[in-house]
Amino acid sequence: MDFQIAGLPAHILLVHVVVVGIPLLAVLLVVLAAWPAARRVLWLPTVIGAFVLLGLTYLTIESGEWLEHRVNETPLIEAHTEQGKDIEPWAIGLTVIAVLIAVLAIVERRQVRRAAVDAVPAPPTGATASAATTAARPTSTATAAGPTGTATATDAAAPPRARTARTVVSVLLTIAAVVVGAGATWTIIQIGDAGARAVWQGSYSDSPTGGGEGSDGGGDD
């Protein structure tokens, strides 16, 4: 497979997406795990983004190995290429957490709708049944509306065990997101540092070398 984009090695372009995307996804997962209203709105784009980023991570690793065979091999480049594979388990971990957050969000929305239906009073019998049912409809609709579930009345109407279970799962997912996100971010920093050393160490001078405007020499006295 030819890993080139517009005549340039794809690795030097893809790596920027991964370097920025991994930490952003890590922060977003922590927010969604700890904030129910946010995850009920953003769970779908987040899980899609996590899978896209996972695919780009694998492409970045493969394109890096492709590029390694087309440059002068040095110990620093070999070390950077091997170290690049360290991000794989962290990227998979972030994707798994995104999927679990999506599952939690779907369960919450179903519980919200079920609580809203259960909160609707049974229609009374007699001549006032029609008027009472009509008056109750706007309340039930308002309670069930919105992707966030208007959590006040509906969460209060949910069974205590369900609320407790959701809270426990949310706390565990928050801890997992913090741990995995921190590990992924630190790994990206380490890989980026190794890549910078592989490219620039020994290939630049501490002082200007050419005849540009910033050079110290070459002027007439």
Rank of each mutant, 00 (worst) to 15 (best):
Q4Y: 07
Q4V: 12
P9R: 14
P9E: 10
I12L: 13
V15L: 15
V15S: 13
H16K: 14
V19G: 02
G21Q: 09
L25V: 13
V27D: 10
A33Q: 11
A38K: 06
R40F: 03
L42H: 00
L44W: 08
P45D: 09
P45M: 12
V47D: 06
G49W: 00
F51C: 14
L53Y: 14
L56I: 01
L59E: 12
G64I: 01
E65P: 03
V71H: 00
N72P: 11
N72E: 15
E73T: 13
T74L: 12
I77P: 11
W90E: 02
W90F: 07
I92C: 02
I92Y: 05
L94W: 02
V103S: 03
L104M: 07
V107S: 10
E108K: 00
R109F: 06
V112S: 01
V112G: 05
R113W: 08
V120Y: 01
P124K: 13
G126Q: 09
G126A: 07
A135C: 12
A136K: 01
R137K: 04
T141E: 05
P147T: 07
T148F: 09
G149Q: 06
T152H: 09
A153E: 10
A158T: 07
P159S: 01
R166G: 15
V168Q: 04
V169H: 06
V171C: 13
L172A: 14
L173V: 05
T174C: 15
Q190T: 10
D206Q: 00
G212M: 15
S215Y: 14
G217T: 10
G218K: 11
G218T: 04
D220H: 06
